[in-house]
């Protein structure tokens, strides 16, 4: 964006940058649209280290 605004690029470079920008915008939009919160839980494992297991929210009474 910044480079495009600064100018001084060849047409090919501008077009490449523009296409890249639009592609990124699309990807970002998709990511935002599709995202779903992933939650896991860090637990000490039997082997002594840690492992992550899925976290299921329990209802708080």
């Amino acid at each position: 964006m910044h480079r495009l605004e600064e100018g001084g690029l060849t047409l090919d470079e501008s077009i490449a940058l523009f296409e890249r920008g639009m592609r990124l915008a699309k990807q970002c939009g998709q990511k935002l649209d599709e995202a779903e919160l992933k939650v896991s839980q860090l637990m000490p494992s039997a082997k002594g280290g840690y492992e992550t297991i899925p976290f299921e929210e329990k209802e708080v009474s």
């Binding site: 995202a35 919160l37 992933k38 939650v39 860090l42």
Partner: peptide, 8 residues
Amino acid sequence: PLVEVILS
């Protein structure tokens, strides 16, 4: 929601 959460 993009973030991954690890509960410790």
